[in-house]
């Protein structure tokens, strides 16, 4: 289905924002287009995320933020454009001047390097917290059970839920479930973590505990892309804030610029509404 026949030119290497200055960005997004029927959701999105940096994507609903995130780990097939993580094309293999579409098995392997945290957690309700965490390392990476278990318990400790290993997801609060979901994504030791509105389904008093876990990850140098409506979180944690509207990136830069001195009228209008 792809119309790509030539690889796009390599991204400019002189970007200086973020921690991975100089090196090739961890996530590179080029010319993404995606339509659902006649609705064009992404209309040419370009994005670079340096290794170890936190990118927060803001924008009104329907602006294509979630679709962008889902396109990055190939949950959503693209109409045009491509995505590379750590230099590896996602969903395609390049051979000479051709791109071969990868089989599902290979896409699944690529996804083990990309952690994804859903708005609705999507924990497996029939498995305990511990089973939720060890499932992918054992099934996808072939880790020995004992090793996966030890790693999972360490991760639960890290998100403050060591005592919930034997609980079932429905026995936990929303905030606890989302922390388990984050630990589950981390269990694969991904190169990059994608968060799709991780606090939107939570009661207001539970938002803080989830954001604290994400902030902790940010400090530890995990590469992250976070779609959220939490402007305060963006200001505090983001290296780069990306503002999207109508399927394109309207404006991007350090939070101090985009949030406090936006150059674009659409950005200003959006911030005036949410702040």
């Amino acid at each position: 289905m792809t119309t790509l026949t030539k690889a796009d030119p390599t991204p400019p290497a002189d970007r200086t924002d973020g921690a991975g200055a100089g090196a090739a960005p961890m996530v590179q997004v080029r010319g993404l287009h995606k339509s659902f029927g006649r609705l064009e959701v992404l209309r040419g999105v370009d994005l670079d995320v340096p290794a170890g940096s936190v990118t927060v994507v803001l924008g009104p609903s329907g602006s294509g933020k979630s679709t962008l995130l889902r396109a990055i780990n190939h949950l959503e097939k693209l109409d045009r454009g491509h995505v590379a993580i750590d230099g590896e094309l996602i969903g395609y293999r390049r051979s000479g001047d051709r791109l071969y579409e990868l089989k599902e098995r290979e896409v699944l392997r690529q996804r083990t390097g990309i952690g994804f945290v859903f708005q609705n957690f999507n924990l497996f309700p029939h498995l305990t917290v511990l089973e939720n965490l060890v499932e992918a390392p054992i099934a996808a990476l072939g880790r020995p059970r004992a090793e996966a278990r030890a790693a999972a318990l360490a991760l639960l400790e890290r998100v403050g839920l060591a005592d919930k290993a034997a609980a079932y997801p429905r026995q936990l609060s929303g905030g606890q479930q989302q922390r388990v979901a984050i630990a589950r994504a981390l269990a694969l030791e991904p190169k990059v973590l994608l968060f799709d509105e991780p606090t939107s389904a939570l009661d207001p008093e539970l938002v803080g505990e989830v954001l604290d876990v994400i902030k902790d990850l940010a400090r530890s140098g995990t590469t992250m892309i976070v779609v959220t409506h939490e402007i305060g979180f963006a200001r505090e944690v983001a290296d780069t804030v990306v503002f999207m509207d109508g399927g394109v990136v309207v404006e991007q830069g350090p939070p101090a610029e985009v949030l406090d001195r936006p150059r674009q009228e659409r950005t200003r209008a959006f911030l005036a509404k949410v702040l």
């Binding site: 949950l75 098995r105 499932e135 992918a136 099934a139 994504a185």
Partner: peptide
């Protein structure tokens, strides 16, 4: 079975057979 379940399994890179056996069918 809620579509998000299979999506979460796919996002975790769990092989397709295992998704069916371990995640979808028990539910």
């Amino acid at each position: 079975v809620e579509a998000g379940q299979r999506e979460a399994a796919a996002a975790l890179g769990i092989p397709r057979w295992r998704q069916a056996w371990r995640i979808v069918l028990p539910q």
